[in-house]
Simulated assay, not measured.
Amino acid sequence: MSPENLALLQELAGPIVAITVIGTVGWVATTWLRIKHGYPLEGSWGQAIHPKTDDQAMQRIALLTSENAELQAQLGSIKDRLATVERIVTDSGYQLTAQIEALRDRDGASSVN
């Protein structure tokens, strides 16, 4: 090996090591985030490898699924009730009743004075 090539290799050794370390740390961080959030990993041939879930995670998933179903049912009920209230308020009979009650209140207040 010539002295020029040896000097060039020594100059590039630091950046090569730094790039290798940064790439490895990035890969480890990406893998950790995928495992933490339940995303499948990739095998050497590109196939999806799903991380194993423990019993606690399965119970949490079941609890969240049932809670989600309950909340969706409540939301549907609230939407139905809101539609009913909107229909009552926009009904002309309701407005007429409100006007009659306002007249009664006005007449009742003037007869008291």
Rank of each mutant, 00 (worst) to 15 (best):
M1R: 02
M1A: 07
P3Y: 02
P3V: 04
P3E: 04
E4V: 12
N5H: 02
N5F: 01
L6Q: 14
A7T: 03
Q10A: 05
E11F: 03
E11Q: 01
L12K: 09
L12F: 03
A13G: 00
G14V: 02
P15W: 01
P15G: 03
V17N: 07
A18L: 00
V25N: 01
G26T: 06
W27Q: 05
W27P: 08
V28F: 05
A29K: 11
T31V: 06
W32I: 13
L33K: 09
H37P: 15
Y39C: 06
Y39N: 02
Y39Q: 05
S44W: 13
S44A: 11
W45P: 08
W45S: 14
G46I: 00
H50T: 11
D54E: 06
D54R: 07
D55G: 09
D55N: 11
Q56A: 12
A57V: 13
A57I: 09
M58L: 13
Q59F: 15
I61P: 12
L64A: 06
E67H: 15
E70W: 13
L71N: 08
Q74T: 00
Q74P: 09
Q74A: 13
G76L: 02
S77R: 08
I78L: 04
K79I: 09
D80A: 14
A83T: 02
A83P: 02
T84P: 14
V85R: 02
E86G: 09
R87M: 10
I88G: 09
V89H: 07
D91E: 12
S92Q: 13
Q95M: 08
Q95P: 12
L96E: 14
T97E: 08
A98V: 15
A102I: 06
D105Q: 08
D107F: 14
D107N: 14
D107L: 11
S111M: 08
